[in-house]
Design a protein around this nucleic acid. Structure first.
Lengths: 242, 242
DNA sequence: ACCTGAACACCGTTCAAGT
DNA sequence: ACCTGAACACCGTTCAAGT
């Protein structure tokens, strides 16, 4: 009746065969279950009760491996972002790496809106630190250092996280393409109705046909351009003061 | 004491005397109570029970004027952002307006972390639309238009919202300067301990003495530089293809 | 029409009791 | 040490009943 309990009774530490339905509870298994629940039921579907049901265990058991529901969400996001960062790492083109990282994050969030919400929630969670470090490595390889690196890194990371949060909220509200189209059309109509300012009218028209992904990448390019034009100006200033 | 209250008494349509303990419930009064609760008790202190206690009314009364707790939060954030946008509007220097707007948002969030959290939560809430429009007007005045305006606006707004969310989360965790210093010192020590990579070591050192506000403004400048270098490149391309 | 407040259907977290 | 599950102290939201 309860396969999990049966498995648990013949658990052996040294075995090299690891089946999916492995025995004892562990942080890893809990996080894995958390990701599954988030993917299928969304953020509002993540309850401690859902996690314990999924793992066929008691309520309090979770708290032996994890201190908080928040820690659970942070760990789940970290699991997803780890893979994105690893996939974008390396290569001999730091600008390309930055674009690949940004795009990877965008796509991970497009597929799993809950990651975007979580990333924009807490500044020093593991997933965000990973992103900071990857951005730092690439910028450093491009010759940016010191305070300029901190400023540039902060700009890029905050931009990516901001877009992440906004896109995630949109994706949550309108999951598929059709719902999204309908939502944007309705919103554009609303804008156009509320405000006759030509700028708003034009924005409403653009809103209907805009591509989130392309717009996101355009933003990354703007920041990259800004970083190097700032760098160039700073270099000129340094030369001038020598 | 509460600028919103003052603002409201000026904006009340036909009367010039508005007492605090006015009789009937209204959306306005409910939002006002919401802001007060958020300011004094933080986001976790905002419960429907707290709102009804504050207004000395029954639980369900709120739902005659507001559909949701979410709408309450969005309306509260909109009230705060309205003032920021109004204060930063006008002037004949669009770049200055953009910096003033960004800084105004930063400072509003520094004073009221809950605003930052709320802004980064929902892409098409009233407060965010106000920011979009103000940014659009300034960029437009700088001669940016069409898709470039949408891209640039999106980049700036997402950057501001991202930084807003991250800074708000930090401000919530460490409200005063001393707590903040202690927190950053601890975090820097943690980074330095975990990773011997020289880049991380340097970042940890920078982290301890970095100024969130200056870093935020540096990001705005990077963005502005990026827009005009992108614009310049696009212009060159247009010329070349003619 | 507006308000009341009890009731409903949930939460996250704790903790004595078990193995 | 790890797990169980009832109990606790909350939530947001609804709705029959009042004015």
């Amino acid at each position: 009746m309860n396969p999990l309990l049966d498995q648990r009774s013949n658990s052996v530490k040294m075995t090299f065969m690891t089946s999916r339905r492995t025995d004892a509870l562990s942080r890893e298994r809990i996080v894995e279950a958390t990701i599954q629940i988030l993917d299928t039921a969304g953020e509002s579907g993540l309850t401690l009760r859902a996690v314990t049901a999924h793992l066929a265990t008691g309520r309090g058991a979770i708290y032996h491996h994890v201190t908080n529901k928040d820690e659970l969400l942070a760990a789940a996001a970290d699991g997803v972002i780890s893979q994105v960062v690893a996939a974008a790492a390396g290569g001999d083109d730091p600008r390309g790496s930055i674009r690949a990282l940004a795009l990877g994050i965008f796509e991970a969030i497009d597929a799993r809106p809950w990651v975007g919400v979580q990333l924009s929630r807490e500044p020093f969670q593991p997933a965000v630190l990973q992103i900071w470090k990857a951005v730092g490595v690439s910028l450093s390889a491009l010759g940016v250092g010191g305070t300029a690196l901190a400023d540039a890194g902060s700009a890029l990371v905050n931009y990516v996280l901001g877009a992440a949060g906004q896109h995630a909220a949109g994706a949550r509200r309108a999951p598929d393409g059709a719902a999204r189209k309908e939502f944007l059309d309705g919103l554009a109509a609303e804008w156009a109705r509320q405000d006759s300012d030509p700028l708003v009218q034009e924005s409403a028209a653009l809103l209907r046909e805009h591509d989130d992904r392309a717009q996101f990448l355009a933003g990354v390019n703007i920041f990259l351009a800004g970083i190097f034009s700032s760098e160039a100006i700073a270099a000129v200033r340094r030369d001038a003061s020598d």
